[in-house]
């Protein structure tokens, strides 16, 4: 320890007085941040207590976000002491932070408009379906600056081919319960042409339902006889049926989407 002491003395330049130590504040902040983390971890557990969960259903997710913003601010403000540091550093850090948040939301809004094939806002008409193809509305539609891209064309071709195969598979494996037009049968398959879904209507959710089946119903787990490619094609096809509301279809089951 004496050696250590020597080094510490060596290290001292003996110039200006030492700055004030923040050790105590850091430790207190560390304890507070730990407590906040424990509270955060407790929030998902509230789901196990239905009365408490439903009592303030809209509160839990925003509470989590507020707590994380508090932690973020505490670490940046106090551990990185940006709060009491120069304005220049604040500008350097905080302006890109806002820019990042802006691009985050910009990307989010793009996804609805331009990335239709992956399940958001994607709808084709009954006539399209009768023709057996998907119109090239993907990737921003005919008005998009890249509408004539080779990539776009190849993408649409691949989609058309997959869509046709999905229709074939549907005709071979699904119509016995869901009817040829997807309208459903009493006591068997649900109506796939309304906008109600018992296990989710996004392509991904449909994929999972088709692959794993629904226990306690007539819906088998198709993953035992179809590969992921085939499952995906059927999921897309079933997704395309949404909102067609064929005549004589079964009544709405599950949640509206």
């Amino acid at each position: 320890m004496s050696h250590g002491h020597a080094v510490e003395t060596n290290g001292a330049h003996g110039g200006p007085a030492l700055p004030h130590s923040h050790r105590k504040q850091y430790i207190i902040l560390g304890v507070v941040l730990s407590l906040v983390t424990f509270i955060e971890l407790g929030i998902p557990l509230v789901k196990g207590v239905p009365e408490l969960w439903t009592a303030a259903k809209e509160v839990w997710a925003p509470l989590l976000i507020v707590l994380s913003i508090f932690k973020f601010g505490a670490v940046v403000g106090d551990f990185m002491h940006l709060r009491s540091d120069l304005t220049l550093y604040k500008i350097l850090f905080i302006s890109p932070l806002f820019l990042a948040m802006f691009s985050f939301f910009a990307i989010g809004s793009l996804s609805v408009v331009h990335y239709a094939p992956f399940g958001k806002g994607y709808a084709i008409t009954a006539q399209d379906l009768a023709d057996g193809y998907v119109p090239p509305t993907v990737g921003g539609g005919a008005d998009a600056p890249w509408a004539d891209d080779k990539f776009e064309a190849a993408f649409v071709d691949a989609q058309k081919a997959g869509f046709a195969k999905g229709k074939e598979t549907f005709a071979a494996s699904c119509v016995s319960c869901h009817r040829a037009d997807g309208g459903g049968m009493p006591g068997l398959g649900v109506n796939l042409t309304d906008d109600c879904y018992k296990h989710g209507g996004k392509v991904a959710a449909l994929y999972t339902t088709i692959a794993k089946g629904v226990s306690g119903t007539a819906m088998p787990a198709w993953q035992s006889s179809m590969d992921s490619e085939k499952l995906r094609q059927v999921a897309y096809y079933v997704h395309s049926l949404k909102g067609m509301n064929v005549a004589g279809g079964k009544a709405c089951e599950g949640a509206k989407e």
Partner: peptide
Amino acid sequence: FFYHGNSLG
């Protein structure tokens, strides 16, 4: 988050 919930498998 852009791709969240859109996985096909």
